[in-house]
Nucleic acid binder design. Structure first.
Lengths: 347, 347
DNA sequence: TTGAAAGCGGTACCAG
DNA sequence: CTGGTACCGCTTTCAA
């Protein structure tokens, strides 16, 4: 803006390295990308110049020119709550091994639609995209499909994936846990989830709803009467919602003898509330969670829950993405990594 | 590769929109960036063309041309363990409001040095960079300094930050909790951390070491004798390490009456192990954690711990970054967001 | 094995 | 208010 402004950013460009090494820019490029095509002696001179100048290739320019960004976009609702953290970690690991980077987009349940998020991500011209949502607006689907890049939907198994999917059946998971509770002798089984989203939010917890649906289906199958569902509004922590949720559940259906919670955090709150009220767990009330969070296995809690392969989902998504990018045929477009009922003390 | 290869990616380019709207490319650019400078009628025509063609501006090209990427790199060790997840969330939120995106880099304790990670990140020409490490190699520091972009180190308060820092004093936190235990009448205080890193790993848990140092300093100040430290190797989950760590601690120093753990997960493991052994908590043994994880406050556990402003750290880092990018003067280069001792049942 | 030239898809700058 | 033109830093293609 004026003459005392800080010096403009100045990066060492490939041209500078070339000049220093007494070669042309393209030769520097070759040293970096196809070293075998450059005479050893020349290469060493260039490498020395790179070192001396501290040259870091500009991937923005490189991406534009080569039409390959080596960038993969991940779109999730939030990192907090630790549901997706392991998946992102797994993805990052797999991608780093192939020298690809991660572009992270979070919605935070903001009113910004997934559509806007997808557009923003595609603007970076990623080589692939990973979504934790299996439900999209028509416009979003269209953008994704026409982008011409591999798309992986994770954490669910959509019937009609945009492209590929890696996850497990949330519906079956809900069913399985409900059956497990039934097998343990329970007949009046409730469900506590963390309820509706704020106005304007996106699909929110579609996976949670699928599990709830599984619970409902199992109740019907087993002829256990109408569902007993409490959905706590978005206030306070998940643990607090679990505590409040159990209170509400018992108020409405005092004879409930088991609760399936939408996550381990919610379940922890429910267990706490039960203890507070002197309700014996699992004696009088069985409690089950979902996710097998770090704390679930701790003795003193021993939460019965559903273990899901979060890290593996990310790793597999990365593998699929890279395979497709290389043009390798991907036969299984939908990868079911399953889940596992972990039976502990509370149910 | 061959004639049956999939059609090459073809994006709608600005030129296409321009042609459809009967204007020049630069006018399309103006409609997108400075709409006020375009006549309403023209603008509407262009906007219609954008809609019709589903045009998504290429930010790669835009970044190269404008020398502004609107990308911020975050370099962390891992997302799992939920230590940094909230910080990344906070950062993402702040940045999204300013239409900036996040480039995520994780080390996963791999042998890839932070140096390599920094170079990779800088190659994307980010407008700023956030690091969860306050210790860097000379080369890394040099790269960061010469990049000419704002740099924020988070989760610690380095004496000599590369540029800016947002966090709290881990050393003081360690000291404060030790003093708290002392104030509660404890005199034989131990420390359980999750120990040494695998060979080739980076700085690992420098912050943990700082807390350990604070513990040591407090012991000396209070004249509580030599430190009793157990560092569990990297095997199994944090919770398991906590359980094993407590066992080791009690084996070496059976009369220990308090333990400060490097994280709430470790503390949870310690509490579990204590219960398993019939050791009364906090009667015979006080246990304190660090982090105030989601499960810490659950009744039935009531873990005494240190609460740290993870989300706020990310948000503030984002704010500083954006302010500096805008050229606004940033007076406080080091922002101490503090910590808080949360006194609950276990100590 | 090396280089020259022509873009990649936008934006800055200067005219009109 | 709109357009022409150069150019961002690298890679592709074609020649030598």
């Amino acid at each position: 803006m004026n003459d005392t402004a800080p010096p403009p950013r100045r990066w060492v460009a490939m041209q500078d390295v070339a000049a220093a090494a007494g070669v042309s820019a393209i030769t520097v490029s070759r040293v970096l990308r196809t070293p075998a095509k450059v005479r050893v002696e020349t290469r060493q001179r260039v490498e020395a110049a790179i070192q001396a100048l501290g040259y870091v290739p500009d991937r923005v320019a490189g991406s534009l020119s080569s039409r390959e960004s080596r960038l993969v976009a991940v779109l999730i609702s939030t990192l907090a709550g630790s549901i997706f953290a392991t998946t992102v970690d797994g993805l990052a690991q797999t991608l780093r091994a192939a020298d690809h980077q991660l572009l992270l987009g979070t919605t935070e349940y903001s009113s910004a639609s997934e559509e806007a998020l997808v557009a923003t991500a595609l603007g970076r011209r990623p080589d692939g995209i990973v979504l934790t949502s299996g439900e999209h607006t028509a416009a979003a689907r269209a953008m994704l499909a026409s982008a011409g890049i591999p798309v992986v939907e994770v954490w669910e198994l959509p019937e009609d994936p945009v492209d590929m999917a890696v996850g497990f059946s949330n519906l079956e998971a809900g069913q399985a846990m409900t059956r497990h509770l039934h097998a343990g002798g329970r007949r009046r089984i409730g469900f506590v989830g963390s309820g509706r989203l704020p106005v304007g939010a996106g699909d929110g917890d579609r996976r949670g709803r699928l599990r709830l649906q599984g619970y409902g289906a199992a109740l019907a199958d087993l002829d256990l009467g109408p569902p007993r569902v409490v959905r706590e509004p978005f206030e306070g922590s998940m643990v607090e919602r679990g505590a409040r949720g159990l209170a509400t559940l018992l108020e409405r259906w005092p004879d409930t003898d088991a609760v399936f919670c939408s996550s381990d955090s919610v379940a922890l709150g429910a267990v706490s509330e039960a203890r507070r009220r002197g309700i014996e767990v699992p004696g009088r009330l069985a409690i089950a969670g979902f996710g097998d969070f770090e704390f679930a296995g701790a003795s003193g809690l021993g939460l019965t829950t559903v273990r899901v392969p979060g890290h593996a989902i990310g790793a597999e998504a990365g593998r699929l993405l890279l395979a497709r990018k290389r043009g390798e045929p991907v036969d299984t477009r939908i990868v079911d990594l399953g889940f596992e009922i972990v039976r502990r003390a509370t149910a």
